[in-house]
Structure formats: C-alpha cells, structure tokens
Design a protein around this nucleic acid. Sequence first.
DNA 1: CTGAAAGCGCTTACAG
DNA 2: CTGAAAGCGCTTACAG
Lengths: 329, 329
Amino acid sequence: MKDIADKLGVSSVTVSKALNDKEGVSDNLKIKIKKVAGEMGYRFNSAAKSIKDGLSYNIGVMIPHRFTGVNESFYLRVYQEIAIHLDHYGYFGILNILSNEDEEQLNFPRVYSENKVDGIIILGQVGKKYIETVQNMELPKLFLDFYDEHADIDSIITDNFYGAYEITNYLIQCGHREIAYVGNIYSTSSIQDRFLGYYKSLLEHGLSYDEQLLLNDRDERGTYIDIQLPEKMPTAFVCNCDQVAYNLCERLTSLGYSIPQDFSVVGFDNDIYATLANPQLTTVEVDIQEMARTAVKSIMDKVANPNRRNGRVLVQGNIIYRDSVRKTN
Amino acid sequence: MKDIADKLGVSSVTVSKALNDKEGVSDNLKIKIKKVAGEMGYRFNSAAKSIKDGLSYNIGVMIPHRFTGVNESFYLRVYQEIAIHLDHYGYFGILNILSNEDEEQLNFPRVYSENKVDGIIILGQVGKKYIETVQNMELPKLFLDFYDEHADIDSIITDNFYGAYEITNYLIQCGHREIAYVGNIYSTSSIQDRFLGYYKSLLEHGLSYDEQLLLNDRDERGTYIDIQLPEKMPTAFVCNCDQVAYNLCERLTSLGYSIPQDFSVVGFDNDIYATLANPQLTTVEVDIQEMARTAVKSIMDKVANPNRRNGRVLVQGNIIYRDSVRKTN
DNA sequence: CTGAAAGCGCTTACAG
DNA sequence: CTGAAAGCGCTTACAG
C-alpha cells in the first residue's frame, strides 16, 4: 500500500480509501490507484485488517473424528457446502477434525485458543462433557445436525420426525396397512425421532402399532446385526436410513422375494445406498444445501450480533419417489 | 497480554517471552505468567503474529467444483487428511472450491489475493488455461493427484502405472493368460497410465496384447456406457476403477456367470464399490493417508524454503486381496 | 533476567 | 478531497 502511495505521490490513507471504495477520494484518483495496484500485483493483507477490527473472517467447522470413516462422507459434504456459502460472506471455513483424544481431554480447539475464527460450527454430536467445553468458548457457536437439551446453544437439524411422518403417510396412501419400522430406537436420537414420525402417522390413520413390527438393526454399539424378520410379515418397511434399507432389500431378495411386488421398502437420507439398491429406493432426502445455507446464515448473524438467538431450527427433507414402493390400491 | 503484564507488574515483552518459552525469563516468573494467562482466559492473537512475520499459518486447498459431485468423496477425504496433517505443523487448511466460473475467468482465488494462505495445494486437474493462472501466483504451490508436463510445478500423484502393473502381475501369477483391460484410455491420464502398467505386465510375461481385449467403459464426456463384451472372452478383467469393476460384476452376474469361478475381476481405488461388489473386489488401494502426508510435508518444506523443488512424487498403492480372483493353477 | 522502542500493514478519527 | 497521527497485539533487536 505504501509502495503504491509512493509511486503516485499520495498517502497510504488515500490508497486505503480508494481500494475500499470509501468516500473522500476523487473518482479520478481512485481509478488511478486501482490501476497501479493491479499492475504492481498488490495483495491485500487480511491479517492487518483482522488485527484492526478483531475479526478473523474465518469460521471453524469441527467434526468429531469418529464421523469421518471411510464410507461416511455426509459431514464432509456438509462442510463443503458450508465453505461455498461462507464465501458469499467474504468468509472462509477452517476444518477442524476433533480427535477422540482432544474430545476426552476436553481441550479447546486450536482454532479457538489462537483466535483463528469468529465463530464455530460443531458438526456432529460431541460428548456431554465436551459440550460444556464448547459452552465455555466465548464465541458464537452452533450445533449442526444434533442438539442437546441441556446446552443453551442454537442448533440446526434435519426434521427427522416430519420426514418419517410424511414417508409413512405416503405408504399408507399407497394402501399399506401393516408397516414395520427398522431401527434401534435407543441408538441415536435421529433414529428415535424418525420412529416417532412413523408412529404419529400410524396414530393419525387409526392403525394400531404392533411391537412385533419394530425391527432392530444394530446393537448398542451401532454395529449392524442381522435383521430378525417377524413371523407375520408386514407389506412395507420404513427403514431408519438408506444403508439399512439397502441391506434389507438384499436380504429379502436373497430369500426369493421381489421388491416392490412382495414388499415395499423405504429409506432415509438419499445417500449412495438409495441408488445402489435394486430397485432404487424411495426415500427422504436430507437437504444438505439448505442445512449449510441455514447454518452459515445463522452463524454470520451471530458474528454480527452476539446476542442473536435462533433456537432449534428444523430443516425439512424432500421425499424422492423411486421404485421400491408398490401401490396396493 | 498487556492485561497479564499489568496484573503481574511486568512488561508485555516478558509475558510474550514466557508464553513462548523463550530465553530471558526466570522459570519462576514463566510459571506465574502462564498460570495467570490461563486464569484470565488469555487467547493468543494469531493475526498479530501473522502481521509480524508475514505468515498466515494457513494452507489453501483448492478443489475444482466438478470433482465434488454427490457420490464423489475422494477429494474431500484427501482434504480431510490434509487438514489433520497440517495440524501437526501448527497450520490450518482452508478449503476453496473452485467454481467453473472462476476457472473460466481465470480469477485468482480469494485465499490468494487476500493473503490468507502461505501456500496452496491444487487438488484435482484444472484447465490448461487456469494452470497458467496458478503459475502466476507468487506462493508455494503443489499439484495433487495430477500433473502437467508444461507447468514447472511440483506434483504428487498416485502411482497408477505401478499399481496396475502389480495387480496384473498378480493375475498372471494366479494363472491367467487372457486378461482384458476395461477403460477408455483417452479419457483421463490416470486411466491411460493404469493401462500402461497393465500393458507392461503383459510384455514382461511374454503375453501378447490383444486389442479386442481393450474394453471401453465411458464416452468422451466421461459418462459410463454399457461395456461391450468381446466375442472371445478372457479369464480376467483389469478394470480402471472399482466402480467400473462393480458394474462389470453386476453385468456378468446378470448374464448368469459367477465370479470368480467363471471370471476374475480386479479394480482400482479401493473405494466403497470394492466392498459393495459381490464378491468383494481385489483391488489397488490408493493410499490417501500417504498422499496427504507427502503433500503436507512438501508444501511445508516450500513455505520454509521457497526454492525447494520436489518434482513429481509418486505415491504407491497397496494391493488389497479379496475374493474376486480365482487361482487357475 | 527484564523492559523500552520500533515496526508489521492496515483503518479510523480527526485536522486541514 | 487529502493526509498526519494513533493504534490494533504481537515480536525482535537492543539496552540496561
């Protein structure tokens, strides 16, 4: 900046004003300054600005390491969309994989202790203890894809309840009356919330809930187990996620059944398993774009106004109609 | 820092030295200062340090948008590993999705023009024109997973050639003599390099190359096409990637063949398709960890010493032995 | 072992 | 419309 000023015989203050399109510089001079800046390959030093206004223009996105396995790309996709949206605000995203070690030892993330970010999005459920650590960070923060009833921290989550409710309604519209739910409802809150949506749909349509039709899909540690099919089979299965729906389809097919002729199967997520299944699955698409958009808007609001509260925001999914459901009416 | 200094009646210089474990402060005082800093919730201001030493302690990772489709998570995984490795160096990773628009208009990325990073890793092939733009950036830079013969920029790539060579050798060791290669060798340089590894293996073993056994899998725009099986079938197929191997297995199975009894099939990448295939695929694992580790080491070297050149570095994969190959001897 | 001074690149408030 | 001065939080080189 100083070099540009010297070259044109003006002060660096004037250069600063011109480059930022502020008042107090003649249009003529502004143009000249910008031209010279371009020619000299001037690059703005964002660190100097940061030190002035105390803003880093970065947002940290923290993902617990255990959610980043070989075949789990959901959170990475969300992060990607967040990065794209942050760009619209002139911000950047810094990815922070929270190691199990840091989570256990309740360490603050380095992005925080080094003042690298103006806000932080926690993407994926962290342990109860760590939530307290998060609460102690004096920074705008946001839970994404989970919430904690005890922590007074805004969160953005998929509307699991409503999505499962809608897709169960759809099955009923198609004439199904005996509908099973597949998932361990004590495993995660999203599996449980999806179950409750399924349950509400049954209630509303006057269908009785049959405990025999609640099928377990994983043990308490989250490892998939073989699904125990009920003695009296339903005509349709609401699965808590596409991967389980995929597994179920494979299972039923290997037993000689056809889908959707013999049984209808629906999933949740609209991930890769929905299109790999044969036939492709009717499912509830989790709206990653919208989640990222909402999350970025929310955290930027908080950066501008630290007292801003948005509470729990639900992002609705969309039913994707494919070929795994049979109309029986 | 000043607050801490005031509280203890020392100067901020002393506080700085103590917090950085530098010489010139008594151990006693150091301990006291660190204690007070902790109590006061002191957070280091990295922007101030940045402005002093001209380093941002960030590395930009740029991924062209077209490589980030719904079912493509490979580059995101690489980015994730890069972020983890950067952490060891006290650095952070800033993800930059390069939009088609920016790529066409040859715009510098904002991470560059705002001096947000000390180096940049370009992850995934960018257009010829844009490579020139990259070359014009006065910053350490590195191509990851591709290279350009005209650009004098260091690159790190998977050893496609050697991986395909090794896995073809393995098929030959298992007794196969008629071996097909599946892939459009004019589509990407990795498909071509993998083909050449296959070809070398044939040559070394005195097997003749039969053009009829080069099977196309995609059109010039990269869209998968139905694979045209040859009249005289081989006993094994080397596929250019796991997804194509998966498709081929489905195809052969639907034609009534069994794998590996009737035909052996191998893939490349060791991605999700390798484990989804039935039977699971023997394949070449691309070593994401090692690529990320090497890339981070290389870019950090360059940050420390801008003249450092590493040339083209090949990262070898590992053969993963599963159940899609039959021993015929 | 400790600290006063200067400087990194920018912006803001104020004076001319 | 233009610019001199001060300051953001830190570190380095130097003096005591």
